[in-house]
Simulated assay, not measured.
Amino acid sequence: MPLTKPNQQLHRDLKEVAALLKWSGVDLAGMAVRLSELGFEAEARELLKIVTSFPDAEDKLAGYADEVTAGDITRAKAE
């Protein structure tokens, strides 16, 4: 069964946020390298600690998007 328009939008939103998170992680990792090169080792380590949590969140969002496609998660209109 095809997805309803609200569910299509939900699926797109979840995929978009996952992609944004991935690219943010790449950018933040690059910033951590630059911080390290400038001698801000502690700050770089803290930033990398945050970035390492991103892949799990990306996987969760992708899983939710798959559940929307399967019809397990749906978006209902607000009452």
Rank of each mutant, 00 (worst) to 15 (best):
E41G: 09
D56V: 09
S53Q: 09
A29Q: 07
E79Q: 05
E43W: 06
K15V: 06
D59T: 13
P2W: 06
R12A: 10
E67C: 06
T4P: 06
A18C: 12
Y64V: 03
K49Q: 10
M31I: 09
I73P: 05
D72L: 14
K22T: 12
V26Q: 13
E46G: 07
L3D: 00
L14K: 05
S53L: 05
T52D: 11
P6H: 03
L61T: 08
E79N: 13
P2I: 08
G25A: 03
A42L: 13
A65Q: 06
K60L: 08
V17N: 05
L20A: 14
V26M: 04
E37T: 03
I73F: 12
L20Q: 15
V33Q: 11
V26P: 02
W23D: 13
E58P: 00
A42M: 14
L20T: 09
S53I: 01
A70K: 15
E41D: 15
D66I: 00
N7K: 01
T74Q: 03
A78I: 10
K22A: 06
E46A: 14
M1I: 05
L38A: 12
P6L: 00
L21Y: 14
E41V: 15
L21C: 11
D27H: 13
L21N: 03
P6Y: 01
V51N: 02
A65E: 09
G63L: 04
E58C: 02
G63H: 09
E16H: 09
L47A: 11
A42E: 12
Y64G: 00
L47V: 11
K49C: 02
M31P: 03
A62D: 10
S24F: 08
M1A: 14
Y64K: 07
D59G: 04
S36T: 10
L3Y: 01
K5I: 05
I73G: 03
V68L: 04
L28N: 10
R12L: 07
Q9Y: 10
M1K: 15
K49G: 11
P6A: 02
G30L: 08
T74A: 02
A65K: 06
H11C: 07
N7V: 00
S36L: 10
A57T: 15
I73C: 02
L61I: 04
G25V: 10
D59S: 11
E58S: 01
N7I: 00
D66S: 12
L10C: 00
V26R: 07
R34M: 05
R12G: 01
L20P: 02
T52H: 02
